[in-house]
Amino acid sequence: MAHSEAEVLSGLAEIVNEETGLATEAVEPSKSFTDDLDIDSISMMTIVVNAEKKFGVKIPDDDVKDLVTVQDAVDYIVKAQDA
């Protein structure tokens, strides 16, 4: 069953929190993973792998560079669920 946008956001925030220790509230839709949340490329890939597992989607490496903000990632995952 597909996750709602709100569920994806909170699930993603939990994954980011697990990986980086950042508070889940800090993972706001407008934040940039690199510029605002200070997430490096290896952490980003770890987050992507965990998100794929959690939401049952595939996020090809070539698409990861387009996920600049948290909202970008949420949109991508919501859409990928329907695919």
Partner: peptide
């Protein structure tokens, strides 16, 4: 599978 092997 390979995709789940963590980058670190």
């Amino acid at each position: 599978g390979s995709r789940r092997v963590m980058p670190l």
